[in-house]
Deep mutational scan, measured.
Amino acid sequence: SPEVQIAILTEQINNLNEHLRVHKKDHHSRRGLLKMVGKRRRLLAYLRNKDVARYREIVEKLG
């Protein structure tokens, strides 16, 4: 489901952010981070168009 995919991506994004705080010059990982953020944004847009209630619920849960 989109909610699960968004939750997994959010966790991976948070982990990668911590990694990049330590390894500032790791541009390869930064590119992966940007791809993940874009994918999460697309999934959220899809969910917002399909079911606003589910969209609001996941945004509330994940912050």
Rank of each mutant, 00 (worst) to 15 (best):
L47Q: 00
I8W: 14
V37F: 08
A45E: 13
K39H: 08
E18P: 01
I6H: 01
T10A: 02
S1K: 07
K35C: 11
V52S: 12
Y55H: 03
V22P: 03
E18H: 09
R56L: 15
D26G: 05
V22T: 13
A53V: 12
Q12K: 14
L20W: 03
I58P: 00
R56Y: 12
V4C: 14
D51C: 05
N14M: 09
N17Y: 15
K61N: 07
R42C: 11
N49F: 11
H28F: 08
K25M: 11
V52A: 12
L43N: 00
L34Q: 10
I6G: 01
G38R: 15
P2Y: 14
I58R: 00
E57C: 08
N14Q: 08
K35Y: 10
H23S: 05
R40A: 04
D51S: 05
P2K: 06
E3W: 06
T10Q: 03
G63K: 14
A45Q: 11
V4E: 14
M36H: 03
R30I: 12
A7T: 07
E57F: 04
E57R: 05
Q12M: 15
S29Y: 05
K35E: 13
Y46T: 09
V22W: 10
L33A: 02
H28W: 07
V4Y: 15
E18S: 08
S29K: 08
Y46L: 12
K35N: 09
L9C: 03
E11L: 10
R21A: 07
K25Y: 12
M36R: 06
T10E: 03
R30S: 05
L47A: 00
Y46C: 09
D26Q: 04
V37W: 09
G63V: 14
R30Q: 06
K24N: 12
R41C: 15
L16H: 02
G32T: 15
N17L: 15
L9K: 00
G38W: 14
L34C: 14
A45C: 14
E60W: 05
N49Q: 13
N49I: 14
D26C: 07
M36A: 12
R30D: 05
E18T: 06
L62M: 09
K61L: 12
V52G: 09
E11K: 08
K50C: 12
A45R: 11
Y46G: 05
I8D: 05
V4D: 14
L43A: 02
R31K: 12
V59T: 05
R48S: 03
A45I: 10
E60K: 12
V22E: 08
V22D: 10
P2W: 14
M36K: 06
N14F: 07
R21W: 03
N17K: 15
H27A: 09
E57L: 06
E3D: 05
Y55S: 01
E57W: 05
L33C: 08
R41L: 11
L9R: 01
R56M: 14
Y46K: 10
R41F: 09
I13A: 00
R30N: 06
R21H: 05
M36N: 02
A45M: 10
K35H: 08
R31E: 08
R31D: 07
Q12C: 13
Y55G: 01
R31A: 11
G63E: 08
R54K: 14
I13L: 02
N17E: 10
L33R: 04
M36G: 01
L9M: 04
V37H: 07
T10L: 05
K25S: 13
L34K: 10
L62H: 03
K25H: 13
S29A: 14
N17C: 15
R31T: 09
A53G: 10
L43T: 00
L44E: 00
D51H: 04
R42Q: 10
R48V: 03
I8V: 07
K35I: 13
L43Y: 02
E18Q: 09
R54G: 04
D26M: 04
E18V: 07
G38V: 14
V59L: 13
K39I: 13
L44G: 00
L9H: 00
L47H: 00
H23G: 03
K39A: 11
D26R: 04
D51W: 03
E57V: 06
R30K: 08
M36T: 03
K35Q: 11
A53W: 05
Q12F: 09
G38H: 13
K61D: 04
A7H: 10
Y55W: 15
L34E: 09
R31L: 13
V37Y: 14
R40W: 06
S1W: 15
P2A: 12
V59K: 04
P2R: 05
Q5M: 11
V37K: 09
